[in-house]
Design a protein around this nucleic acid. Structure first.
Ligand SMILES: [Mn+2]
Ligand SMILES: [Mn+2]
Ligand SMILES: [Zn+2]
Ligand SMILES: [Zn+2]
Lengths: 156, 156
DNA sequence: GATTAATTTGTAATCATTATAAATTAATTA
DNA sequence: TAATTAATTTATAATGATTACAAATTAATC
């Protein structure tokens, strides 16, 4: 699905919640769409939006991100690096995707398939907890870093 | 396992990493042990430690928590409420336990059994990612709030 | 006991985020 | 259309969590 039609879909979502897609909001959403694989912070988004709309204010970016979070267009998440990061929901995804955080290089890989269906079943039955969503991040070593570590070992 | 022997175990861990268990550090660890079911913030821990050792400084609590995080005695985590929370690792637990966050009342329930063994298998094989640990939080409605919501519906 | 190293304290600085008031823009009404 | 009202944005101040720093204290070593 291309950016234009994604944008239209989001515009509709805003209108249904009786928000307008102002130029500032549109510029912010565009940055998110153009960087959908990334996990940008508010400040990083602000810097990118400024390239399109140099007059935008940081507070507006924050407010827009809050609104998009409420509407579940983006997910706000934290990888324990002291600031919030924003992640576009995948098109039509019922549940939030998972993340693989490399402890060596800091890279974040995405896992789009939902691996938690069985686990959620257990949680609902055994803990009587009604699951609405989840956050799952694996900490470990990405493939590239595994190779690097192996080579270093051989070199010594 | 009682608090005294837990404390001794942690003392040993510190010594192995050539840290001392100073009175301030001991008071901080004791607060964590006495509230192992909670998910306290640095400020909350500071307040509780002050009751034992009124002369302790906030900076020391922060430094101690950082040290304990490095030694994997505690896990630092964030429930998106704007501050870090600290969680004692379960005795002998290889992996970090899971959390059930209620969107209605904000309560946090713990799930000690590891439900992710199969999922980790898949991640290692399919994504060639070497898993070291994980963070899993379910968002939803706790049992108590489900009852409350049901009653409210009937009352209307 | 003197010297050196580790730790703690109180406080200042920093950084992310939120609040506020004035200005701008859009929507509604007369 | 012009006037009025509501929504939004901007720049900036305030807040709150965390980190940095210098002086003081405590422990370890000589
Ligand atoms: Mn993602
Ligand atoms: Mn916990
Ligand atoms: Zn890596
Ligand atoms: Zn609840």
């Amino acid at each position: 699905m291309n950016i234009e039609s994604m944008l239209n879909k989001i515009r509709k979502q805003l209108h249904e919640a009786s928000y307008k897609l102002t130029p500032q909001r549109e510029a912010t959403v565009l940055v998110l769409l153009e960087n959908e694989k990334d996990h940008l912070s508010a400040e990083e988004i602000y810097m990118l939006v400024k390239q399109k709309s140099p007059e935008i204010g940081l507070a507006t970016v924050y407010r827009t991100l809050e609104m998009l979070t409420d509407l579940k267009v983006v997910d706000k998440l934290s990888f324990n690096d002291g600031l919030a990061r924003y992640d576009l929901r995948k098109e039509g995804a019922k549940h939030f995707h998972h993340h693989l955080l490399c402890l060596e290089c800091g890279s974040i890989e995405e896992v789009e398939e939902d691996l938690l269906l069985d686990v959620e079943e257990i949680v609902e039955q055994r803990y009587l907890f009604l699951v609405k969503d989840h956050r799952l991040t694996f900490h470990g070593v990405c493939n590239a870093c595994q190779q690097k570590l192996k080579n270093n070992q051989n070199a010594q």
